[in-house]
Amino acid sequence: MSERLGCLLLIAVLIAWADASRFKKSDRRGRRLYLMLWGPAIYLGWLFVTELSGPNVDTVFGWFTPAAQRIVHWFEGGAKG
């Protein structure tokens, strides 16, 4: 866990350092959107560090899996028959 946290903090510091001057030059809207992007990054970082399985993009994709499986089963039905 500490390895993962260390890795993530290092990346965050590097990004903050690399974007600092551009962030200062951007307008208020740009700054607000930039900071908003850190919301999902922090949530995903928390999932990564704690190794928990909270709601994620794959949860959304999972809603479509039953429909996709029905399509695939139709193809597989031909293979078996």
């Binding site: 974007d19 551009r22 307008d27 999902p40």
Partner: peptide, 16 residues
Amino acid sequence: QDEQLLTFPVALICFL
């Protein structure tokens, strides 16, 4: 206006 500003945070989200 400045799309470059998005590069690293978006890459970080994709990485995670």
